[in-house]
Design a protein around this nucleic acid. Structure first.
Length: 469
DNA sequence: TGAAATGTTGGGGCG
DNA sequence: ACGCCCCAACATTTC
């Protein structure tokens, strides 16, 4: 009788899980184990930890439906797994490969001591599978996506029916954590599938435009589920491709756009895998040494949604309340921190990682480097968002602002995105006195824009001078 | 997945 | 009727 371990890390699902599949196919007994290592416990990200813990409870229920049991352990992964092997006589460990620098260091250590098999599942295609003819990785999205699309789709996914998880009954486990469930993002596979279905039925056809409106549910809102593997990228890609097939030729644009977003996710996983230094520095060395401002008060105002720019403040407050922010909002607030306040993008990256339920090093770092204009395939640094124009375009009636910034609730439509234009009478009539009820803008956009253009240009010129003979 | 600055064109007011 | 100016609308360039 053969026993194996399914080492669960960020693949909290029983459907379409290559590691689980290999485990049940190759053994009579499977021990699903999640180890809460020191790194995880140190993480200052309560929203994400709570979501993970709720996800573990849901996963345990699913595993039990299939006849098994989730084992929780605490400690160093190599020691925990070694002990589990001693206790149970397990012969192999199956796990989904993770591409972050920490995960790779951890996994290298474990696999140098124990028999581990890593399976591809975090992305549809392994980062090493999507490379140029000469074997080098892509650093530009468009050719990456062409190569990605040209690869054969992976095999048919495993269905939940038709297999059981037999876990030996006498294996000790730490208790399941009891953190509070997010009211915005209930954890688990069933919820992920509900959202996927809803999105494909109701939203994906108009995704191309709908995704941009801050106060609409035009996005899939699946990011937390992808983050913890409650939904596999493979399942989502198969589903949206089936949808594209099913839609008439003129109606496929939205679904194509969403497929591209899933490929962006794979692209940034690939960038982190091939260029792990992006965790600590700009991908583009020319912008390594920008003269960032040291402006703790401005940074605090940004974090707390008190910049005086309604669209920025609304989005930042949405993040604090929900542990999530609309993607358009992420671009707007990131542009504001980097380009208007001239604060190092890494400060914003850190704040997002602290609060986002979906916080993922690869995607978050890629997004911040993109906004700052210092990354791969970067938006040139001189693409600077105007927070007022963005607000007028993507929150035309100010509904999003009013929902998240109650001080502005009674401000008239014409002033909702630029309340500083109100005269004294308008301010008191709307109960929104500038500097009293709601902050005056902490920076003037057009001045800030000039300042940033100069700072980026100086960094570039300095670097060029340093790198020419 | 930008926006500002600058250039061009053409209609209309007006002396 | 003509020339001049203004400026909106659109296009192109620049950051």
């Amino acid at each position: 009788m053969k026993t194996v371990i399914w080492w669960i890390r960020r693949d909290l699902r029983v459907n379409d899980n290559p590691a689980l599949k290999a485990a049940v196919q190759n053994a009579d007994f499977v021990i699903p184990v999640f180890n809460r290592d020191a790194r995880l416990m140190r993480l200052n990200a309560p929203n994400r930890i709570a979501f993970l813990e709720a996800g573990l409870r849901d996963l345990d229920a699913r595993i039990q439906q299939l006849g098994g049991k989730l084992i929780i352990r605490n400690g160093n992964p190599d020691q925990v797994l070694d002990r589990l092997i001693q206790e149970t006589g397990a012969e192999v460990i199956y796990a989904e490969e993770d591409y972050s620098p920490y995960a790779r260091k951890r996994d290298d250590l474990v696999s140098s001591r124990l028999p581990v098999r890593f399976m591809v599942g975090l992305t549809v295609h392994h980062p090493r599978a999507v490379v140029k003819g000469d074997g080098f990785p892509y650093t530009v999205f468009t050719p990456f996506s062409k190569a990605w699309k040209a690869l054969p789709s992976p095999g048919k996914e495993q269905s939940e029916e038709g297999f059981r998880i037999n876990t030996p009954s006498d294996i000790p486990s730490e208790p399941l954590p009891q953190a509070l469930e997010s009211k915005y993002f209930p954890a688990g596979e069933a919820e992920a599938y509900r959202r996927l279905e809803w999105f494909l039925e109701q939203k994906v056809a108009h995704y191309q435009d709908g995704r941009n409106f801050l106060n609409e549910e035009g996005t899939s809102s699946l990011s937390p589920y992808f983050r913890f593997g409650m939904l596999s990228a493979n399942t989502a890609v198969r589903a949206v491709r089936a949808k594209i097939q099913a839609l008439p030729a003129g109606m496929q644009k939205g679904a194509e756009t969403w497929l591209n977003e899933l490929i962006w996710r794979e692209f940034y996983q690939s960038i982190l895998y091939h260029f792990p230094q992006v965790r600590d520095e700009a991908f583009n060395p020319a912008y390594q040494n920008i003269a960032w401002r040291d402006a703790p008060a401005d940074l605090e105002a940004w974090k707390n949604g008190l910049t005086g720019y309604p669209i920025v403040d609304a989005s930042m407050r949405q993040l604090l309340e929900m542990g999530w922010m609309h993607n358009r909002g992420r671009m707007i607030v990131a542009s504001f921190l980097v380009k208007d306040l001239l604060v190092n993008w890494q400060e914003g990256e850190r704040w997002f990682m602290r609060h986002l339920i979906d916080g993922d090093l690869a995607a978050n770092n890629g997004g911040w480097q993109w906004t700052a204009g210092v990354g791969t395939d970067a938006a040139p640094y001189f693409r600077i968002f105007n927070p007022v124009l963005q607000a007028k375009k993507f929150d035309p009636r100010g509904e999003f602002v009013r929902r998240w910034v109650p001080e502005l609730r009674n401000v008239k439509d014409g002033f909702i995105h630029e309340p500083w234009l109100m005269d004294a009478a308008d301010q008191s009539a709307s109960g929104c006195r500038l500097g009293e009820d709601y902050p005056a803008p902490i920076v003037d956009h057009s001045e800030a824009r000039q300042r940033t253009l100069a700072a980026f240009q100086a960094a570039k010129l300095f670097w060029q001078a340093d790198h020419t003979e």
